[in-house]
Nucleic acid binder design. Sequence first.
DNA 1: ACGCTTCATTGGAGCGTTCCAATCTAGGGG
DNA 2: CCCCTAGATTGGAACGCTCCAATGAAGCGT
Lengths: 341, 341
Amino acid sequence: MATSRPTIKDVAALAGVSKSLVSLAMRESDRVSPASLAAIRAAANDLGYRPNAAARSLVDRRSHTIGVLVQDLHNPISAEVIAGVQRQVRASGYHTMLVTGSEDPSLEQGAIEKLLEFQVEGLIIIGQRMPAGVQEATNGECPTVIITRSERHVAGLDSISNDDVAGSRMAVEFLHSLGHRYIAHITGGDNQVALMRKSGYQDAMTDFGLAANISCYEGAFTDEGGYGGTRAALDSSIRHSALFVANDLAAVGALAAVAEQGLRVPKDISVIGYDGMALGALRSISLTTIAQPLAGMGENAAALLFQRIKDPSRPPVHIGLEPKLVIRNSTGTFTGWPSTQ
Amino acid sequence: MATSRPTIKDVAALAGVSKSLVSLAMRESDRVSPASLAAIRAAANDLGYRPNAAARSLVDRRSHTIGVLVQDLHNPISAEVIAGVQRQVRASGYHTMLVTGSEDPSLEQGAIEKLLEFQVEGLIIIGQRMPAGVQEATNGECPTVIITRSERHVAGLDSISNDDVAGSRMAVEFLHSLGHRYIAHITGGDNQVALMRKSGYQDAMTDFGLAANISCYEGAFTDEGGYGGTRAALDSSIRHSALFVANDLAAVGALAAVAEQGLRVPKDISVIGYDGMALGALRSISLTTIAQPLAGMGENAAALLFQRIKDPSRPPVHIGLEPKLVIRNSTGTFTGWPSTQ
DNA sequence: ACGCTTCATTGGAGCGTTCCAATCTAGGGG
DNA sequence: CCCCTAGATTGGAACGCTCCAATGAAGCGT
């Protein structure tokens, strides 16, 4: 009715009680008599009253909001992690303010500043790289969890990730068990995660006595990255019977490059990815992969954050989750080189 | 230093000026003398001062925040629309509070309530279905734009979508031009969007004198939905040379079902999708589709929202964008039925 | 009946800002 | 040398809410 939203006062007036009592009633206190409660409920309903979160958060200095920064919304794994985060955050009675990172890291910092102005009580960062200036921005004062990259060395930051080195070994081991010896790696660039996956690959190859067969081709955590790296791998003079691609998205690009060369998967060449994105399960992709428990990581991250909010002095924690091998149709036993070429 | 964040008062004290002047300075007013400005800047910096958005929004009754409800974060097109929304929202100096819908529509309503408590100045809804009780919740008072479904009939809601009927006709026309006559449709369920696409299909078939060939198989806007519908289509006694699938995600499922039957695409059967999700362009999918300008829709939605915020009395607007045909490798000319079977 | 406890209810202060009207300080013109 | 104006600066009210200490009204035992 009024030009602006009704306040607690309006409700109080209509219900014939004081604003304090309305405040109590809105928060389901048991100290309100049934009669008043009913009157207040009715009044609030009539007026279409809705508490003002800003006022509320101002007085009790809690926003009940968690800020989430997603660096790459286009990687489908982000959606899965976000879903997990949201579930847990919501379950804890909090809300989520989500911002997406962009190409420009300075914008990222600005986004974080804004989240902090909103008095978010914690920050969850989903992505491989450490966003520019989180620490300067938070001044170490805002509980932060970073997902997908282990940050043991950064003081005050909790992190949650899978063990990329172990996962990569797992990939190599699996391919090795299928009889593959010429296993190439398409990298994910030079970010931390990609480097760990690469080093897991190298270690495993070495352990299997295949150090001489180690060959890495530069890619990225994108479709194009995987495509390009695979093109290079296939063009090289070395013949590979299997490809370990740094992540699933890139692996899909790799599949394309492979198909383009007229090679069949897994008959002529095996491909394994990393991440466990839901799309990899699509029947027309059917990608063997090292799967991270994505939604679970999101949930764990939120849980971790709440723990730290409760006890800010707790030393930083890193949770490492075991990735697991998911076998689909992009890998097969090595049966010798095709006779052609 | 202090246990809680420094306020404008602390800055004022340190800079030796009044809080009002600090307030002015923080908002880059030109009425502040250079000397004071410098002192204030220095003090704010020393203290690590950051304005409190809640207090600010309380007093000027504006949150500078837009609420975004994403119904299906797992559909990759959501990410693309979101990116567009965020770009525009950010460009307008606003922020985004994003919540994801879930299976349970009542949770959706709760999520919207929460957004409104945060005094979001507008709402953008990304999804096919009308979330339960948006109107009741907003009470028609919160500017709202819905993306991906035309809502001409809902008073007070702006909407932005592509013309699904026209797009579907386009799909059928294209297949027809390739020589296909037995074109089946795998539906997207019984939501508005799916129904429009279906009716566009039916209309076009009828116009081409192919009414007798109309055959729809029940699917959904998911991988599984497309897979199941396509299984049914292939199992039926009618032979189809082309499939128009209700959306891209389902079309990918369709590709899988087709492959499973040993049919080759596009040689034995053509498949066309709808949406234009980025993943459809992946080389190993290469899906012909009717593409919506997804990011553009997001941007337009935000722009539309800001217009309405400025002028709330403006009658509801519906923006219809033209979808466009993107030809890839999942479609080909009809060259007669394969001799087998 | 009378203190005493118990429970419902209340006004006022205060959260960190912005806005407004009022004050102060310099000049500048007469 | 004083008044006037423009510019810089300020204290206080207000935003909508929660918390607190205080008040009012029963209910109880004796």
